[in-house]
Amino acid sequence: MRPMLIGAPAIEPVSLADAKSWLREDGVEEDELIQALIVAARMTLEAYTRRFFVTQSWRLVFDCWPTSVGSSATLSIPFAPFQSVTAIRVFDATDAPQTLNAATYRAPDSTEGGRVSFASAPPAPGRASDGIEIDFDVGYGSLASDAPQPLRQAILTLVAHWREHRGDSGDDALPKSVAQLAAPFRRERLL
């Protein structure tokens, strides 16, 4: 399984204006830096929580179907919050993609992690590598306000920390205040 980002978030959960207000910054000289810190903070906290804050599109690429997928079986998509599957393609022996009819699988919306249930065994790919592509959307929603407020506050706090301590070398851990804000949303790994 290889994940690929195919559609980055259209917005950030924290706007430049919100961050500048939080930082008490009036000028425009540091706008580019602050915007870059917002993106970096979101991505850092998404990795920490194992959740995506705003809607984005991803693709999972498989060589073959996992062993759990067979007749009336399910495929887990380990991304949260899961929104929907947008397409499932299986490549045939001529490298032509065959898009599965949405009626042959079911993927409930808005679940913690996605589960795609197949009515019957899906077709086997005709090529040895990267024979299956599953496109899907994840995130709390397409609006900045859809992201939970504690996560938005964690982004602001991390942006302020990084701006205050830029150039300082030291501990790579999240500041305690940021970790405390994000901890309730953190998904633990099972493996």
Score class of each variant (00 low, 15 high):
residue 33 L to F: 13
residue 35 Q to T: 07
residue 35 Q to V: 04
residue 38 I to G: 03
residue 38 I to V: 07
residue 39 V to R: 11
residue 39 V to K: 09
residue 42 R to S: 03
residue 43 M to E: 14
residue 43 M to I: 12
residue 43 M to P: 01
residue 44 T to M: 06
residue 46 E to L: 12
residue 47 A to M: 07
residue 48 Y to C: 13
residue 49 T to H: 13
residue 50 R to V: 01
residue 50 R to Y: 06
residue 51 R to K: 13
residue 51 R to L: 10
residue 51 R to G: 01
residue 52 F to M: 15
residue 52 F to S: 10
residue 53 F to V: 01
residue 56 Q to D: 02
residue 56 Q to R: 09
residue 56 Q to P: 01
residue 56 Q to I: 02
residue 60 L to Q: 06
residue 64 C to S: 12
residue 65 W to Q: 05
residue 68 S to A: 11
residue 68 S to D: 15
residue 68 S to K: 14
residue 69 V to I: 09
residue 71 S to D: 10
residue 71 S to I: 15
residue 73 A to F: 12
residue 73 A to L: 09
residue 75 L to H: 12
residue 78 P to H: 15
residue 78 P to N: 10
residue 80 A to F: 08
residue 83 Q to Y: 04
residue 85 V to L: 08
residue 86 T to P: 00
residue 87 A to F: 05
residue 88 I to Y: 08
residue 89 R to S: 05
residue 90 V to T: 00
residue 91 F to I: 03
residue 94 T to G: 11
residue 95 D to R: 08
residue 96 A to T: 08
residue 96 A to V: 08
residue 96 A to R: 07
residue 97 P to L: 02
residue 97 P to R: 04
residue 97 P to F: 09
residue 98 Q to T: 13
residue 98 Q to D: 08
residue 100 L to S: 04
residue 101 N to Q: 11
residue 104 T to V: 15
residue 106 R to I: 06
residue 106 R to D: 13
residue 107 A to T: 00
residue 108 P to T: 04
residue 108 P to S: 08
residue 110 S to M: 14
residue 112 E to K: 15
residue 112 E to N: 05
residue 115 R to A: 14
residue 116 V to A: 11
residue 117 S to I: 03
residue 118 F to S: 02
residue 119 A to F: 15
residue 120 S to D: 14
residue 120 S to K: 14
residue 121 A to N: 10
residue 122 P to S: 12
residue 122 P to G: 11
residue 123 P to M: 08
residue 124 A to M: 11
residue 124 A to L: 05
residue 126 G to M: 02
residue 127 R to I: 09
residue 127 R to N: 07
residue 128 A to M: 06
residue 128 A to K: 12
residue 129 S to I: 06
residue 130 D to N: 13
residue 131 G to L: 04
residue 132 I to Y: 07
residue 132 I to E: 03
residue 133 E to F: 05
residue 133 E to P: 01
residue 133 E to C: 07
residue 134 I to E: 02
residue 135 D to E: 05
residue 136 F to N: 04
residue 137 D to R: 13
residue 139 G to E: 03
residue 139 G to C: 06
residue 140 Y to C: 01
residue 140 Y to T: 02
residue 141 G to D: 03
residue 143 L to Q: 12
residue 147 A to F: 03
residue 147 A to K: 06
residue 147 A to N: 01
residue 150 P to T: 10
residue 151 L to W: 05
residue 152 R to A: 02
residue 153 Q to S: 15
residue 153 Q to Y: 04
residue 154 A to T: 00
residue 155 I to W: 02
residue 156 L to C: 08
residue 158 L to N: 00
residue 160 A to P: 00
residue 160 A to D: 01
residue 161 H to R: 08
residue 162 W to F: 14
residue 162 W to H: 12
residue 162 W to A: 09
residue 165 H to M: 13
residue 166 R to C: 08
residue 167 G to D: 05
residue 169 S to Y: 07
residue 170 G to F: 12
residue 170 G to A: 11
residue 173 A to S: 09
residue 173 A to Q: 10
residue 174 L to P: 00
residue 174 L to M: 13
residue 175 P to A: 13
residue 176 K to W: 10
residue 178 V to I: 02
residue 178 V to S: 01
residue 178 V to F: 11
residue 180 Q to V: 10
